[in-house]
């Protein structure tokens, strides 16, 4: 076919690429209660983290065939659920305690930016990409997670589900995990509560957005979202004034990566199970996925097709 002579908005559908490391290592989450214990909790966390950070680098080198892997480290601060203190107080303590343990935080990220930043509703746009895994018998007309705010990994028990089938016989029926291996591990995750502007996203949903951001798979109209902002050394009095992704280390490897690894206390296990269930049901933009596949193949790095399988975890004992 000959190329069209006339075009309107030819650049509308172009997808831009992002630089990629081999691994994006999350060295921790910081919540208000962690900081309430001041430096002691941070110190204990980084002491716990140290050996694992080394292990991740060694493991990443296996995948690159001995070449020095590009590993970037990041740290997430919760300013969404319970904003606390200020960057001027928290950031120097964070950097100091990490350095004390011989670690370096390359990127500092604010959790509220995963919900909305610079007027762009990131979490809402990821919610728009949910394509639910249909339990057998689904013909596409059941209420979608986008309406209910709940996402499951299978068929809900009709006796307890929020959308119980009125034609089902009374009495209890077990839920069923669609991809169960003989026995089910059924999970139903709350993605948000509240409506419209009053919607609050759940920790699990924001953590799924966080994984997609670190995997370099989020775009808005083809453009990468939340690009790292180089740090000029200044620290504002409020979190809102701080860029969402702040690059603390000017020599850091790229923020986004082929794979992610998150170093978390084992208390996060249920949340991260929900994150896996969410990631398995998000249809990532095809071109963004294709770019990552092409680049990793060119470097000889094997990547699973499943986005959820690109996220790995190290759970150390802790709440």
């Amino acid at each position: 076919m000959t190329e069209a002579v006339f075009r309107e908005f030819p650049d509308q559908s172009r997808t831009h690429s992002v630089p990629l490391s081999h691994v994006s290592l999350e060295m921790g989450h910081l919540y208000a209660e962690d900081f309430a214990h001041e430096a002691a909790r941070l110190r204990a966390h980084f002491a716990e983290a140290g050996p694992w950070v080394d292990a991740v680098a060694v493991s990443a080198a296996r995948a690159t065939g001995g070449r020095r892997p590009r590993v970037s480290t990041c740290f997430l601060v919760d300013d969404y659920f319970a904003p606390f203190s200020s960057p001027a107080d928290v950031v120097p303590a964070l950097i100091g305690e990490a350095e004390r343990a011989g670690l370096r935080i390359d990127y500092l990220v604010r959790e509220s930016g995963l919900a909305e930043a610079d007027g762009f509703p990131l979490a809402r746009s990821v919610a728009g990409r949910l394509v639910e895994s249909p339990p057998p018998g689904s013909n596409g007309v059941r209420p979608a997670a986008a309406e209910t705010g709940w996402l499951a990994n299978g068929r809900r028990s009709p006796a307890s589900g929020p959308h119980a089938d009125p034609s089902a016989p009374s009495g209890w029926h077990p839920p069923h995990e669609t991809a169960a291996r003989r026995h089910s591990v059924f999970l139903d995750a709350e993605l948000w509560d509240g409506q419209g502007a009053g919607r609050t996203f759940s920790c699990a949903f924001l953590a799924a957005v966080w994984q997609l951001l670190r995997l370099g798979l989020l775009r808005h109209h083809g453009l990468p979202v939340l690009r790292p902002h180089p740090w000029d050394g200044s620290l504002p009095g409020t979190w809102e004034e701080l860029p969402v992704v702040l690059q603390l280390n000017p020599k850091a490897a790229p923020f986004a990566a082929y794979r992610t690894c998150s170093l978390l206390p084992s208390g996060y296990l249920p949340v991260e199970h929900a994150v896996q269930v969410i990631l398995e049901q998000i249809q990532v933009e095809a071109e963004a996925l294709h770019q990552v596949a092409e680049r990793s193949a060119a470097e000889g790095v094997h990547l699973p097709d499943s986005v959820a399988e690109r996220a790995s975890y190290i759970f150390y004992p802790g709440p």
Partner: peptide, 22 residues
């Protein structure tokens, strides 16, 4: 949304997939 003004006003939403198993 692909909005076009020529030769007439036309707007097309992005396609949205819906999962089915039936």
């Amino acid at each position: 949304v692909h909005v076009s003004a020529r030769p007439n006003a036309h707007a097309l939403s992005p396609p949205r997939p819906v999962g089915v198993d039936c």
